[in-house]
Amino acid sequence: MKFADFRRKLAQYWYRFSQNKASIAGLIITVTIVLVTILAPYVTPYPEHAGVFVDFRNTFKPPSSANWFGTDQVGRDIFTRSIFGYRFSLIMAGTVLGIAVPLGVVLGLVSGYFGGWIESLIMRLTDIVLALPPLAMAIAVSAVLGSDLGNTMIALAMIWWTWYARLVHGMVVSLRNEEYVEAAQIMGASKLHIMFREILPNCAPAILVKTTLDAAFVIELSAGLSFLGLGVRPPEPALGTMVAEGARYLPANWWMTVFPALAILVLIFGLNWLADGLRDVLDVDL
């Protein structure tokens, strides 16, 4: 594909994407949050509040110009901690999907392309793992191995790959008899080449859309886990933990719960809208 063609194609995609206001909003929200999170130490008003810090003279301050989201039970700025709290969510989503997507895609490709006993083995294993509820699994692993971030992420990744294995497997089964695959085989292309260069690119749009949607799921789940006190050690900020802590002081000190909860909500909306937009553009049917 020539560069000019590529640009034309991109412009076409962008046109379709920009037709939907929600998609644009989703893109803006997601990009802003990711940028702000990366630059958190520079853009937050009190970066030291995310670490070892207490100020008992300023506890339970309602939202003001100094503390946009108010302060918590030991006087820390909730706005700062919410931004830093996104780190936990994004690291969680990044790591879990970073492990689960490649693993699931490779297993799906292999099982779909080779068929036979390999297919049976991988897909039955997938069925078994799919039967485990992710939240319960993560809690169990934390209980056995100790509740730290690494264990929780591994637990989730060990479940999440199944969705990709199943998705890719289904697509490969229908694609492996396409004419361009047969043509490549006749020309003597290696199995690896056929799997990764001929078939995989045709699955890519679906994988991309599903990954975006799943990012929202994992973030929601990570908020649930940190709400239960798993995966984070105080004083590290996590949005779920902040909601849980704030809930003790409801309804009087509502800002402690409401703002971190809204922060989760906004990110999840953003990712979902973005995924919707991508689906329209890439014409994927999940």
């Binding site: 070892v52 207490v54 039970q73 030991v74 004083p235 802590e245 003790r248």
Partner: peptide, 18 residues
């Protein structure tokens, strides 16, 4: 876990020891 008085004590202690 979840005992807010002890949690605030712990956060204060952590900051003092730092």
């Amino acid at each position: 876990d979840g005992f807010e008085l002890e949690e605030r004590l712990a956060l204060l202690f952590q900051a003092n020891m730092a």
